[in-house]
Structure formats: C-alpha cells, structure tokens
C-alpha cells in the first residue's frame, strides 16, 4: 500500500512541532515522524485525530499513491 502524506507541510504551516502535535493527538513523536516519512500508515482513528488537530480534512493530509488509485 502506498500512501502520500502531506502531514509535515501542513503541520509546519499550522505552527506545530512534531512533539506538540504528538501531545495533542496522544501519540509519540516517533509515530508522527514515521507517518511523515512514509514509514508508518496511521489508523483511521489517528488520521481523523490528526486532521481534527490541524483543522483540515483527512484528504488534505493523505492521498493514495499512484499504484493504489
């Protein structure tokens, strides 16, 4: 499964550090880092929490890679 993540850009634009966003959504900084680096695909619940914290849609944060469309 390939997932394109725009989390890093949107997080930075919102003025959050990885640690602050992790604290807000209740996960570790490592999890945020691995999602941003395309190492870890987050659960639906985490994706929704991230979108809510950053006040954007899940579709703004993530999109399917070319091979999965």
């Amino acid at each position: 499964m390939s997932l394109i993540s725009h989390l890093a850009e949107i997080r930075k634009a919102a003025g959050y550090t990885q640690a602050q966003l992790a604290e807000t959504v209740g996960v570790s900084r490592k999890t945020i880092n691995t999602v941003e680096n395309h190492v870890f695909v987050p659960s639906t619940v985490l994706a929704l929490k991230l979108a809510a914290a950053l006040k954007v849609s899940v579709h703004d944060l993530f999109e399917l890679g070319e091979t999965d469309r």
Partner: peptide, 8 residues
Amino acid sequence: RRATDEGY
C-alpha cells in the same frame, strides 16, 4: 499510553 501507541 503515548509511548505504547499504534506506532509502538
């Protein structure tokens, strides 16, 4: 709980 999240 944060240290034992879904990434862990």
